[in-house]
């Protein structure tokens, strides 16, 4: 700790002289009558549609088609060498021709030489077309999904919730989280959205139903 801690806190307390001494934070009512989700359509279809709105590439497959879908996606991308977390399931890559490099502490330059990265996710939100990574199973550390220009993400049907309020209880704030809604983009030029800036410029999602 450094700086003017006591001074700032004293000023804040002085500024709040009008707040009755007996008032607890919970005494300030917060109405929570907003919806947990918005009934905007069947969850998986909605998730796929919203991702496509962001110009992400989306595939839906039964579990037995996953390896083939991953293989086709990587081939179409021309990805010869992709990174993956150490605990990403082997069978995802069973049919892939690409070399899969497991992340055992690749340095930044090493990551920068990868043609892409393949991960799972922790939670997905249908209404907003969002994938949340928490560094858990098959996801790896944050740099893994940041430096390569292409991110292929495998989302299981049971990981998709409808609305944002349903996602937060499934996530631990103690872990570093990355919420991803489409490829990197900017609206800084005339407030017109353009996909592809510093983060992965291509996001491809495989939904396993």
């Amino acid at each position: 700790m450094s700086g003017s801690r006591e001074r700032v806190l004293a000023r804040v307390r002085a500024a709040l002289a009008d707040v009755p001494a007996g008032e607890a934070p919970e005494d300030v009512a917060v109405p929570r009558d907003y919806a947990p989700a918005h009934d905007q359509g069947e969850t998986t279809a909605l998730f796929a549609e919203r991702l496509e709105d962001y110009k992400a590439l989306v595939h839906r497959t039964p579990p037995e088609g996953l390896a083939a879908t991953v293989a086709r996606a990587l081939a179409r991308r021309g990805a010869g060498r992709v990174a993956a977390a150490e605990d990403a399931p082997e069978d995802w890559f069973a049919q892939a021709e690409a070399e899969v490099v497991r992340d055992g502490g690749l340095d930044v330059a090493g990551l920068d030489r990868m043609d892409g990265v393949v991960t799972g996710c922790a939670v997905a939100v249908a209404e907003t077309g969002t994938i949340v990574l928490d560094g858990g199973r098959a996801q790896g550390r944050r740099a893994l999904t940041l430096i390569p220009d292409y991110h292929l993400c495998v989302v299981r049907g049971d990981q998709i919730v409808a609305g944002v309020p349903q996602a937060l209880p499934r996530l631990s704030p103690a872990r570093p989280l990355t919420w991803i809604s489409g490829p990197s983009a900017t609206s800084d030029i005339e407030l017109d959205r353009v996909e592809g800036v510093h983060g992965p410029r291509t996001l491809e999602v495989v939904i396993v139903e």
Binding site: R50, V125, E127, T128, P176, L177, W179, I180, S181, G199
Partner: peptide
């Protein structure tokens, strides 16, 4: 509906 990236 959501910004491309949110980090926590």
């Amino acid at each position: 509906r959501m910004n491309p990236y949110t980090s926590t």
